[in-house]
Simulated assay, not measured.
Amino acid sequence: MTSDGESGGKGLDQDGCFVREGSLERVPASFAPVVAGLTDRLAGHFPPGRVLSTYLYGSIPRGTAVPGVSDLDALLVLRGEGPSDADRAAARAVEAELDAAFPQIDGAGILLITEDRLLGEAERYDWAWFVACLCTPLSGPDVTAGLPRYRPTSLLAREANGDLHRRLPGLRERAAAATAPEERTRLTRGVARNLVRTGFTLVMPRWDGWTSDLAESAEVFGRYYPAHAEQMRAAARAARNPAAYPELLDDLLTGLAPWLADEYLAVHGAKALPPQGP
């Protein structure tokens, strides 16, 4: 039971630990060629041995992807140092080729991280948790297999999303500079998704469970913060169809986002700053 008296368990096993969401078996048949295309193009753009492991995340491995609406999300774990400019250029080329070749997806996004950083102590409750619990292995070893199990704790909430207050000024600058409709649509989608997920992780330890569904995340958040429930529902709708809400970006960044940043700090504290180099 949680402190609110609700029974948790959604997305958790009987010990209260995260169940890894997604699997290759859940990939919808219409998206299987996209996944195969990703594997082929990675081999064509990255030098042999550069990519240690490839993961999928998001709606495609969860089995909820909608043709023509959903995007392809992937994460590459790299050997050695980096990511380098060449790595980033290769990832952007793969993204562009996939988007052009497969009408099933509305864009592709590839994240890059090195094995050493992913498994370092500083990322234990951020990137490592993300890969261990929310990413589906596609190729290569599962580098997170030896990590301890994760629970929906305040520490996890803090390290996963406790930096909104630091990112908010930059998001406002990007919004002010985004004048093209396509650019604002992309930014609205990204900001809306992030705010819904941040709102959910704010209440995650109290709800004592996990969901990646944006609509459900907004509803769970609304149980604990009813005064902001409609704002969060609007963000969830914009995350799915940002072009339909052209004015929402500024509203989110001046209304919901600053309140959420302050509340997150009050409840969970600030995410630890990354270690500084020499």
Rank of each mutant, 00 (worst) to 15 (best):
Glu230Tyr: 07
Pro61Gly: 01
Leu78Asn: 02
Pro226Met: 13
Leu24His: 00
Leu138Glu: 00
Arg233Leu: 13
Gly11Asn: 05
Asp73His: 12
Asp71Arg: 14
Phe200Val: 08
Trp129Gly: 04
Arg186Pro: 05
Pro152Ser: 09
Arg41Gly: 00
Leu24Arg: 10
Arg223Ser: 02
Leu138Asn: 00
Pro258Met: 09
Asp85Val: 10
Glu183Gly: 07
Tyr150Asp: 03
Ala100Trp: 12
Asp262Tyr: 03
Pro137His: 11
Val131Ala: 06
Glu230Trp: 09
Val220Arg: 08
Leu52Phe: 09
Tyr55Gln: 10
Pro169Cys: 13
Ala96Pro: 10
Val69Tyr: 05
Gly146Phe: 06
Ala108Arg: 11
Ala128Trp: 09
Asp85Lys: 15
Val203Ala: 10
Ala270Thr: 02
Arg189Cys: 03
Leu156Asp: 02
Met1Tyr: 13
Phe200Thr: 03
Ala261Thr: 00
Ala132Leu: 12
Gly22Phe: 01
Gly82Pro: 01
Ser70Gln: 05
Glu121Cys: 08
Ala215Asp: 14
Glu159Thr: 04
Ala29Arg: 14
Ala227Trp: 04
Ala145Glu: 08
Ser30Val: 13
Arg167Asp: 00
Ala36Cys: 00
Leu265Trp: 06
Ala101Arg: 12
Asp15Ser: 11
Ala90Cys: 12
Ala244Leu: 13
Arg172Lys: 14
Tyr264Phe: 15
Trp207Glu: 03
Pro258Asn: 12
Val51Glu: 04
Glu247His: 12
Arg223Cys: 03
Arg240Cys: 09
Ala160Lys: 10
Ala74Leu: 04
Pro169Val: 06
Leu253Met: 02
Phe221Leu: 11
Gly277Lys: 14
Ala74Arg: 05
Leu214Met: 04
Leu56Ala: 05
Ile113Ser: 15
Pro181Ile: 04
Arg88Trp: 05
Leu38Ile: 01
Ser23Glu: 06
Glu25Cys: 00
Pro103Tyr: 05
Leu155Asn: 10
